[in-house]
Simulated scan of single mutants.
Amino acid sequence: MIAAITVALLLLVVAVASMRVLKEYERGVAFRLGRLREPLGPGVRLLLPGVDKLIRVDLRVVTLTIPPQEVITRDNVPARVNAVVLFRVTDPVKSVMSVENHAVATSQIAQTTLRSVVGRADLDTLLAHRADLNEDLAKSIAAMTQPWGVEVEVVEIKDVEIPEAMQRAMAREAEAERERRAKVINARGELQASAELRDAAKTLSESPASLQLRYLQTLLELGADHNSTVVFPLPIDIIGPFLDAVRGTAAPGINGTSPVIRAAERTPHDH
């Protein structure tokens, strides 16, 4: 009786020790006496103590932070670049059989690839076209990790640090570029304004009445200010008849030269 109870307790202990519970996001890679068994899915699994060995593989997405790397860009600018890699295991057996530690191996490959890809790009590309570099990084890392059963989903460059002297030089370059654009825009505005003035002069020359209306408008605008003197020019073809009448009746000092007539003189008290 005692022997039976002892045997039953031993079997119960062995059964409890043989039970393994795999979560839904885990897969098990089991070895029996050193030989690979088929992958184990989630749930309760029985393994023989001392005979079977179980390795759990997590199928969830893993976030891997690449530490800052000292790199030199193609245009010989030193920089510190760090990135983040998102990957997951797609083949549990390969992730165990093909590489000792797939997470460490992926991290080392990501660091090496980051230095290599950034070293082939210039500083402007690194700062303004990160999407292209991220795509190149993802393709290069994925090509290396695919035989391990690891799929790289996202690679993003997080931060780029450059020396302060280079930052000041870039600020001066940006300021000079803005000044150049301002001067170009100002010159284009002057060119367009001169073309419009030329067209306006041609239009006014075709109609003397329009020119007189423009004179009157100018006089009205001048009258709105507190000016003491207004000099108003008149063309010779308008005042020619008046000059002929004056020449025939009055002073001999008047000749036929083109005058600039002082039309009105007003003082601030006239307002």
Rank of each mutant, 00 (worst) to 15 (best):
A245F: 08
V7F: 06
A128P: 01
H269T: 06
K23W: 13
Q108Y: 08
A83S: 06
P163Q: 07
V71F: 09
T90G: 02
I5S: 12
N255G: 11
R247E: 15
E175G: 05
R27A: 01
V154C: 02
D136N: 10
F31G: 02
R35D: 01
A193F: 14
K183C: 01
A15F: 12
A250W: 09
V84T: 09
N186E: 11
I72H: 07
A187K: 10
D122G: 09
I239F: 06
H102A: 03
L216F: 04
A245V: 11
R88I: 14
L220C: 13
V81Y: 12
H226M: 01
T112L: 08
E156V: 11
T203C: 02
V231W: 15
L204E: 03
V29G: 07
P68A: 00
L9S: 12
L22Q: 10
I109L: 05
A264T: 13
R115L: 01
I55V: 13
V71T: 10
K23A: 15
P68N: 00
A171M: 05
P252S: 00
A3F: 15
I236V: 00
P241W: 09
L222T: 04
A138K: 12
R37Q: 05
R180N: 07
R20F: 12
G41D: 04
D225Y: 13
T65S: 08
A209Q: 13
A83I: 05
A263K: 02
E153K: 05
N101A: 04
T257I: 03
L123N: 07
A17V: 02
A169W: 10
I236C: 01
T249G: 14
M170A: 15
R198D: 11
T145H: 06
I66A: 06
Q108P: 04
E135R: 07
V99Y: 04
V14I: 14
D136K: 14
V184S: 10
M19F: 15
G50T: 01
M1W: 14
A105E: 07
I66V: 11
L133P: 00
E221F: 08
A201V: 07
L9C: 10
S194F: 14
D75V: 14
A165T: 14
L59T: 03
R37F: 01
E153S: 10
Q192E: 04
G223V: 07
R198T: 09
G240C: 11
K158I: 12
S194A: 15
R172G: 13
H269I: 05
L219E: 06
H226A: 11
A103P: 01
P163M: 09
F232T: 11
A165Q: 12
I236L: 01
V150L: 08
Q192V: 09
P68K: 02
S98E: 14
D237T: 04
G223K: 09
F87L: 06
A209K: 07
R188T: 15
S18W: 09
V85W: 03
N186S: 10
I5F: 14
L59C: 04
V246I: 06
H226Q: 05
L12E: 06
E179A: 11
R37Y: 02
R266Y: 13
I261Q: 10
R74I: 06
A138W: 07
G189V: 14
V93T: 10
H271L: 13
E196R: 10
